[in-house]
Design a protein around this nucleic acid. Structure first.
Lengths: 186, 186
DNA sequence: ACCTGAACACCGTTCAAGT
DNA sequence: ACCTGAACACCGTTCAAGT
């Protein structure tokens, strides 16, 4: 049983039964092991959650194409990040409260930051724009699927509802990206 | 002991000792009463949290001046909402996972929505813009002060750090508002 | 080295009982 | 009507003990 096995099992439990179904006893059972064995690999429950967060950050980055301009890269970043969040709705509250490692965050945003640098923008300007999009995406996902911990699984969305959120997301993301574009066009 | 007393005591506990210090036993002690007495007034712990959320929404709206244009109203809305969140940092994760009542939300956003209507914009356009700002503000506050539940109180920010977040917030909010302004200027 | 059972100090919540 | 103590079924985590 490796650390990665534990993280994978934890994510499985979260996806199927939600965040507070993830008890140490349940996680142990999922791996055919006593709960206490987990403490050999991860120091406590919080460390398990942190590992899941970083795993998800890595998952988001896999299909991120850089794009031509920084504004296109920024839009794609938001879209890919959102896709990951919607693929793991029960994990969204976890991402909201559990900051990701700095290096996991940089791996996630790295490609986009490069596009800003290539356009001659400072790293501070780049970080501001990318992180602004990131918090918008997360906040939006929370509004869409972030159910309070302890509540049963949300009923699946109707297509109409899903489309409502999709349009709202596109409008907000476009507004933010074009706002930054106007700022840097000067 | 009224329902409002309970909500006030709950917020007091959250502000001083964080979200998971808020146990039913602790809340009872805060009010000089047995934990079980609380169930006479609120059906369970989740109902206490929901009541706190709506209380905070009402708190944010108190000092919200409408502003001249809808874009100014939108900026003020974001600023006031942010001020409330920063006044209750340990409650931010709660706002993130616990959707507010529809009517509490409308009371919070109502004044701003009116400004959009006065400018001849549809309610759908208005909601998209206001809610986009709202999720940005919440997401940003999460990044700034949203510490995982169960962690000790974050050390107070240095002025430098606070200013970093302030500048980031201003840039993101401005980008979003001006992006919506450009969209509706057509 | 890796795993475990029993135990401790907590939770939220129910229920029968008190005034 | 309003409050309560004891109890139940859980938690995360520690620790001494097993292989």
């Amino acid at each position: 049983m490796t650390r990665d096995d534990i993280v994978a099992a934890a994510l499985r439990v979260i996806d199927t039964d939600g965040l507070d179904a993830l008890t140490m006893r349940r996680l142990g059972a999922e791996l055919g092991v006593a709960a206490m064995s987990l403490y050999r690999h991860l120091s406590n429950r919080d460390a398990v959650l942190a590992a899941v967060v970083n795993h998800l950050a890595a998952e988001a980055v896999t299909d991120l194409e850089p794009g031509d301009s920084w504004s296109e890269a920024l839009t794609r970043f938001g879209t890919v990040y959102r896709r990951m969040l919607l693929a793991h709705p029960r994990a969204v509250p976890l991402l909201a409260t559990h900051p990701m490692d700095i290096d996991a965050g940089l791996r996630l945003m790295g490609g986009v930051l490069d596009r800003f640098a290539a356009a001659g923008l400072s790293q501070a300007e780049a970080l501001t724009a990318v992180q602004s999009v990131a918090v918008f995406v997360l906040g939006h996902a929370l509004a869409q699927v972030g159910t309070p911990p302890g509540t049963p699984a949300a009923p699946p969305e109707t297509p109409e509802v899903a489309e409502y959120y999709e349009r709202w997301f596109d409008a907000g993301l476009t507004a933010m990206v074009s706002g930054f574009a106007a700022r840097h066009r000067r």
